[in-house]
């Protein structure tokens, strides 16, 4: 038995590395998420822009509606290998602090979302925005980072609640999306504020601040409740 407490950082790195290795081997999640995001954009195009309307004014909304729905897929994949291959007990008998399990989960969701955004943000710009400036993409990138933070924190918490539920695939979107509405509102607002040449930085800052507050609040909720998620 080791007297030294296992290093927090090493445990986190191992958990994230495990997710990365699983994803690299199976490629289940990411490919599906990216394809889903592209298809969702197509749906928006044909639903709203079928007659060749200029969708620049709603491109931010299209981006974040797409990302919110894609996030449900990513969050839904959380704990699936653990459940299907029945490894969860193995993780739980190790002296890994339970908050690390949530944090590593959130980290994985964050990475998935970021990977999807790398494809989705330029694609939305090409598909829907007329007169985009490259500098705007950086500002939108910042929105993505902030929004991902909130989404992944909330997502990892709710994914745990759905872990042992019946009809888990149905439960998760129902639990997740209502709480996600503020992110969709703020992130699409912020994106809209800087895309297509309209540079309303005051509005942009306000929304970004809100996204930060959102992440902090759900971070606190997760911090206050994580012990009870894996109660043992």
């Amino acid at each position: 038995m080791n007297a030294a407490r296992p290093s927090w950082f090493r445990q986190l790195r191992a958990l994230l590395l495990k997710d990365l290795r699983l994803e690299l081997r199976t490629r289940d999640t990411l490919v599906a998420m990216v394809l889903f995001a592209v298809v969702a954009m197509m749906i928006f195009q044909f639903a709203f822009g079928g007659r060749g309307q200029d969708l620049s004014a709603v491109s931010g909304g299209i981006l974040w509606a797409t990302l919110a729905l894609t996030a449900v897929l990513g969050v839904g994949r959380s704990w699936v290998p653990e459940r299907e291959q029945r490894v969860l007990d193995g993780l739980l008998v190790t002296p890994v602090p339970r908050d690390l399990l949530l944090i590593s989960r959130a980290g994985a969701i964050f990475a998935y979302l970021l990977a999807v955004e790398v494809v989705a943000v330029p694609l939305v710009t090409i598909f829907f925005v007329r007169g985009q400036e490259p500098g705007d993409l950086l500002l939108i990138g910042l929105v993505c980072l902030l929004a991902n933070l909130g989404i992944s924190v909330l997502g990892s918490l709710l994914a745990c609640l759905a872990l042992f539920a019946r009809a888990r695939e149905l439960l998760l979107p129902v639990l997740f999306l209502p709480s996600l509405l503020p992110v969709v509102i703020a992130a699409s607002g912020a994106t809209q504020a800087v895309s297509g040449g309209t540079n309303d930085l005051a509005e942009y800052r306000g929304y970004c601040l809100f996204l930060g507050v959102y992440a902090v609040i759900f971070g606190l909720v997760a911090y206050a409740t994580y012990e009870h998620v894996f109660d043992d």
Binding site: A4, P6, Q11, K18, L22, P95
Partner: peptide
């Protein structure tokens, strides 16, 4: 979906 070595590496890290 991991190899034995990868599995044990994970557990070794979790046990520190």
């Amino acid at each position: 979906d991991l190899t034995p070595r990868q599995n044990l590496e994970l557990y070794a890290a979790l046990y520190g």
